[in-house]
């Protein structure tokens, strides 16, 4: 997700504001410390105009 963000020259704060979460949440998602809820995942997918599975990888 960090790559998607960088490609659009957005900061973590920009993404957080557009999605309606804290910057800390975006940072935790990008560093793999935290998995977003489904509503947040959908909002991120709409923001980046991608499918959820194109942004997040199931590591199991």
């Amino acid at each position: 997700m960090a790559d998607l963000r960088s490609a659009r020259a957005w900061t973590q704060a920009d993404v957080a504001q557009r999605v309606g979460v804290s910057r800390q949440t975006i940072n935790a998602i990008e560093t793999g410390k935290f998995d977003p809820s489904l509503p947040v995942a959908f909002r991120l997918a709409r923001l980046f105009e991608l499918r959820i599975d194109e942004i997040f990888i199931d590591e199991q």
């Binding site: 979460v21 804290s22 800390q24 949440t25 935290f34 977003p36 809820s37 947040v40």
Partner: peptide
Amino acid sequence: TRFLRALDDLQRK
């Protein structure tokens, strides 16, 4: 409880 519900995912966790 209302405060908890208003937090974003990570803050609530």
